[in-house]
Computed example of a mutant assay.
Amino acid sequence: MRAAANCGRGGNSLSGVILSAPAVFLLFLFLIVPILGTIYFSFFTYQVMRPDNILFNGFRNYQKLFRDRNFWAALRNSVYFTLLVVPFQCALALGLALLVHSRRRGVSIFRTMYFSPQLTSMVVIAILWVILYNSNASTGLINALLQHFHIGPIDFLNDPKTAMNSIIFMSAWQGAGYQMMIFLAGLNGIPAEQYEAASADGANRLEQFWYITLPGLKNTIKYVFMITLIQAMKLFTQPYIMTKGGPQNRTKTLVYFIYEQGFQKGNFGYACSVAAIFFLIVVTMSLLVKKLTRTN
């Protein structure tokens, strides 16, 4: 009997290994290998236009990187974008989820409409917002509206003071729909009896939100904050389509800087060193946030 049970457990273990092998292989092939390859090539001088001239240079790429003002500017832009867009987008998504969760008339239509940007290519959305941000009031809808209040015109994407903030607003609008659905799932997991009991005890809406909704969404907020943080640090498409990293490099992010060095200038080895540092920054930030939000 015991031998049969051990045989059954062994068979289950073997089946688990066989079933998980394709996923593990793909994970290794498309995640682990590129990471290791990036770290490896970061120690070489590798010009894409001269693939036969690959020279080992030790830590010279990293030495150059830490002296490169463009790298520090790109890092500063990425951090600035992340610090502003993450709380703004999370707060917007939570507010939308609360509105949708209220079960008012027509809410299902609103939910579908606000989630629709997630189903549209970011390239298309970026082009649309370039038109909306146009400084010409006759073609730019936003400046046309501001003109009625005798404001502007504002050159949103070509002014160093407004370019990154314009991208932040557009990105929060585009991404909040996805986080809204996650918050909505969390709200549906809070028992309605808690609100009924709090209402019977005389708690108002604000007190119910503070003492019931927020504690009930604690794990959901942590998850949404983490994924929004990682996505924010990977910002690329919006600056690439809308500003090309300008004006005055104010919207050039780390990922854009990697693309510029590797694909536009052909400095593949140097781009790999920037990518390795970028990977280290994102992992460190993720671990730090996880530690700070760890449930006691």
Rank of each mutant, 00 (worst) to 15 (best):
Q238D: 13
V33Q: 08
L55V: 02
K218M: 06
A232L: 13
V124D: 14
S15K: 11
F110M: 06
N188R: 12
L31N: 13
F56Y: 13
G11C: 11
A232C: 06
L92H: 01
Q231Y: 12
P87S: 12
S138F: 14
P239C: 08
F115V: 08
F257I: 10
P215K: 10
T45L: 10
G216S: 07
I35H: 07
I39V: 15
N219G: 06
I227L: 10
H101E: 12
K64I: 05
T237N: 12
A203P: 06
Y178G: 11
V124C: 03
L157Q: 03
K265I: 11
F156Q: 01
F41M: 07
M233A: 14
Q231E: 14
L26M: 13
V289P: 01
T251L: 06
V123D: 06
Q208G: 04
I227E: 07
G106K: 10
N134Q: 07
L292Q: 11
L98G: 05
E193Q: 09
N53H: 15
N57L: 10
L26E: 00
L96I: 08
L84C: 10
F41A: 08
N219Y: 12
G269Y: 14
T251V: 09
A172D: 14
M122S: 01
P117K: 00
Y178H: 08
F263C: 07
T284K: 09
L128S: 12
R205I: 01
L119Q: 01
Y114T: 07
V86F: 12
I125E: 08
F59V: 06
S116G: 01
G216P: 04
L132H: 13
V17S: 00
L254K: 01
L65H: 11
F43T: 10
Q264E: 07
T228C: 14
I109F: 14
A232D: 14
T293G: 04
A172R: 09
T45P: 05
T162A: 04
G262Q: 12
Q147V: 03
R50E: 14
N57K: 14
Y40V: 02
L235T: 08
F236Y: 15
M113E: 02
P191M: 02
M285Y: 11
Y80T: 00
F149S: 04
F71P: 06
H148F: 12
T213L: 04
V124L: 12
I154D: 00
I154N: 00
A276S: 15
M180E: 15
V283H: 05
Q194I: 08
L184V: 02
V282P: 09
S166T: 10
L229K: 10
R50V: 09
F71C: 02
I277H: 00
A198V: 09
S199R: 07
G189H: 03
T220S: 09
F25H: 01
P247Y: 13
A163E: 05
L83T: 03
L83H: 06
M226R: 07
F263K: 07
S20I: 05
L254F: 11
I212M: 07
Y211K: 01
G11I: 11
F209N: 06
